[in-house]
Design a binder for these strands. Structure first.
Lengths: 213, 213
DNA sequence: TATATTTTCAATCAAGTGCTTGAGTGAAAG
DNA sequence: CTTTCACTCAAGCACTTGATTGAAAATATA
């Protein structure tokens, strides 16, 4: 039996053509959510954007919630893919890794700002939807651990002040990134991420680097 | 003439009873948005919560959008009231003011977390609604200036490193606060604001205080 | 080929959705 | 007593929403 989850998304077998349809529907929904929020998501519009009938959508997704689940999975996959260990071009030390993390995020924020919009939508939804809550938690924890690990590495390499707490430092960084992306996405302010990365990381450096900023 | 704005909210004269009704409707809408987001806001429910007919609601607010405008005004007023200069119990230096700002926010986050939920909802809406966009911008700028001023003060008092840029420091603090509140509101993490305030502020202190953390 | 399965569609439904209509209410002003 | 006023409501209008149906078309399988 392949009932890995009690709630299966749809009662159709996996075919190449079908999987493509599914994916394109999810993508369409994702784009609509990015543009109009969950508030503005209509299954009719999702179907129309692909050029299929509503019933076709309901053939692939039993319900609107199912479709949304697909969107969440798609987003998380996107995010994780980006967050994944960089195509190692030589060994990097902790500092370089931190810089790289900032650079990745800046790139994503430029190239796919909708990702952060939808992510924020999910943040709000997570209050009411335990399923989204747990998925967000998982994403968050993964991110947190990734950053924490870098800080631990940096501590071992004695790059940071010995009193730096990896957990707290990582929490900060994540909160800061979320806040910044919120500001950017809302067009309230634009930031120079290189500068931010440099300054933020410098705040934890081992020898208090005077005048290096 | 008192046509300060072209779009008046409703065609009714201001009476004590009427203003109360208006306010209670706005409050009800605010609570529903906090609980279910804009996605879950129904004018019928707003009216029902107060125990009046839908038509009564539409007597006070020409449209749902009008009602939402009222909510935004209410929220901003709340926020500004909180952000307002503290009941000065003696003169405070810049450091104390920064700590106080953190304390205020922590208090609000505990006492009225919905405020931050709705604020985040507005952040997302601001992409599509220029009116909200400008209101948020105004709020943000006011906040930013307030913090910047504190930093400038602290620089003058030589409390901070001379290379600290007030604008950037304030931007950070605001972004950090927004990120933290997002985390807290989503139940992803809980923070010790006193600790955060201390560490964050310490990062900009003038004599790099070793071992003070 | 014939048979079964998968995919698509037009048409439809019940339950909402924001908003309006027209008829009132009691209190104050004339 | 009549008129005016701010205010309230039951009823319902026009439209939208997520979801379903039954029958075709497309595709695969025997």
């Amino acid at each position: 039996m392949d009932d890995t989850q009690p709630k299966e998304e749809a009662a159709h077998r996996s075919t190449e053509r079908g999987d493509e349809r599914r994916q394109s529907l999810v993508l369409a929904a994702y784009q609509i959510i990015a543009k109009k929020g969950f508030e503005g998501l209509r299954v009719r519009e999702v179907a129309a954007r692909i050029g299929v009938n509503i019933a076709t959508l309901h053939y692939y997704f039993n319900s609107k919630e199912d479709l949304i689940r697909g969107v969440v999975e798609y987003l998380l996959h996107q995010f994780i893919t980006v967050e994944a260990p960089l195509p190692a071009e030589g060994v990097q030390n902790a500092l370089q890794k931190l810089h790289q993390s900032f650079a990745d995020l800046q790139y994503q924020l430029q190239v796919a700002p909708e990702m952060f919009v939808v992510l924020t939508e999910l943040h709000l939804r997570s209050q009411r939807d335990p399923a989204i809550q747990s998925m967000l938690t998982a994403l968050n924890d993964g991110w947190q651990m990734h950053i924490e690990e870098i800080y631990r590495e940096g501590l071992q390499q004695q790059l940071f002040r010995p009193d730096v707490d990896p957990h707290r430092a990582a929490s900060w960084l994540i909160a800061l990134i979320k806040g910044l992306s919120l500001q950017v996405v809302s067009n309230l302010e634009h930031f120079d991420f290189n500068l931010i990365a440099t300054e933020f990381i410098a705040g934890f450096l081992n020898p208090p680097t005077k005048g290096e900023l």
